[in-house]
Design a protein around this nucleic acid. Structure first.
Lengths: 245, 245
DNA sequence: CTATGCCATGTGGTCCAACCACATCAACTA
DNA sequence: TAGTTGATGTGGTTGGACCACATGGCATAG
């Protein structure tokens, strides 16, 4: 087994070997979005490693949001290539928040920074803005807190995507995911949800109007106040975390 | 074996169970930075799962920069808790760059955004600025390109850390890591490295001076021009990727 | 001929029992 | 005392076995 040979001299573990093979297939275009990896057993035989090592590599790729594993036969079966960087970044951030090495306040501050930039950069004719408007209409008639918050997430994400920077919107999504547990808990601290929701609705409208008017600076100011105001009202930093990967 | 029971009804795989257990230990403070996880065999027995599942969970945590696995006995042995979120984010970003779903231009743009904000926020009395100045002195006498670039990375990171936002500096570091391969290749495109290096040195001095003077706005402008100018001069987007996880 | 049910097949998910390489430390020996 | 050697405990790797699941084709009943 020459893999031991390699491991010894290059200090590369077997699953890392598999990992680099797959990454090469990806960057060479032999594996594309929606494509399927060889079956675990086949891949193990092809690379002359154990199925265990193949599986460890796949676990990592799965955690990175690069593949999705599905059992059974047919369409959804096998390990297929996806592209969900936000889940990976979100999990990583949440884990490090759990270890107390990434303060929640810093995450919120970063979110304000990115989102302000995004709305100031958003083009008034971006198609995402139409979607954002539709989401606001839905929020007007949504009574349940959970529904409202879900729509709120989608709205802010659509706003961010209107700036046309995939990295910024991805990071924003993951920041949000990392503090999702906090956000939900924070809501319980609000003295009067109905009035808060009403205020959020009008703030959303004002932000979207500013973007549609091409008033990037005003939109950025409004968005910063919107986010900071919410967390301040809810009492940032008091709530417990809800651990989940 | 009740784990199968859980898996069936909650569609939670065994390694995810291990993962959530460990994450709970982290957020509850039972596992701290530098602490050691139970041995794989012991953890498997304790959680009533197989060692395989424990290992898959550990692989993920390792990829996330939360733990480090070391063989042997004594100090460096066992699986110990670390805090290296930048490596996780960097790997994830690089993987998705490899799949062509995160444009390099967007990464550079994001870096400009974060770094501009960081220097505009940096406090003039931050201890990191002294380190930054020391790095600049070293760069003055560094001839080799590789040494220069390594110092450059450290300088920009020190600058970012002076803003006091762990999330921003972490993301900045990972953005840099994700395009490290590009940056190295880009350097080869430069028409005259020596003159470029000289220009970079003076730009660095100007940036640091602005920060020390408390002129955040000027520092931000300088930093944006500094970064954008470098990538423009080197011809951003032409270089091939260097795939590695 | 049609429709229903069943099972062969292929996928990932899980577990087990070994063995290896490595690093430390204690006991033993020269 | 100094050096060697073996016991111990750690992660790393392997092969084989079995399970749950989803599909698709075949056999059979109608």
């Amino acid at each position: 087994m020459w893999s031991n040979h390699i491991n010894y001299y290059l200090s590369m573990r077997t699953h890392e070997l598999v990992l680099s093979w797959i990454e090469k297939q990806l960057s060479d275009g032999h594996l594309v979005l929606g494509g399927r990896l060889p079956a675990e057993r086949a891949l193990a035989e092809q690379l002359e490693v154990s199925r265990t090592s193949v599986r460890e590599a796949i676990r990592i790729l799965e955690a990175m949001g690069v593949v999705r594993a599905g059992v059974g036969s047919g369409k959804d079966a096998g390990t297929v290539v996806i592209a969900e960087p936000a889940t990976a970044l979100g999990s990583a951030l949440r884990l490090h928040v759990a270890t107390q090495h990434l303060p929640v306040a810093d995450i919120v501050e970063t979110r304000v920074l990115l989102e302000s930039w995004a709305v100031s950069r958003a083009k008034a004719d971006a198609p995402e803005l139409g979607e954002a408007a539709r989401l606001l209409d839905e929020m007007d008639v949504s009574a349940a807190v959970d529904d409202f918050l879900a729509l709120d997430v989608a709205f802010h994400l659509a706003l961010a995507e209107a700036a046309g920077n995939a990295v910024v919107s991805t990071i924003m999504g993951s920041l949000r995911e990392a503090i999702e547990g906090y956000a939900a808990a924070l809501t319980a601290n609000l003295p009067d949800w109905d009035s808060t929701a009403q205020r959020l609705r009008s703030e959303h409208r004002a932000i979207l109007s500013a973007v549609n008017d091409g008033a990037g600076g005003r939109a950025a100011t409004l968005v910063a106040a919107h986010i900071e105001g919410y967390y301040r009202e809810a009492g940032l930093g008091q709530a417990p975390a809800e651990p989940r990967l």
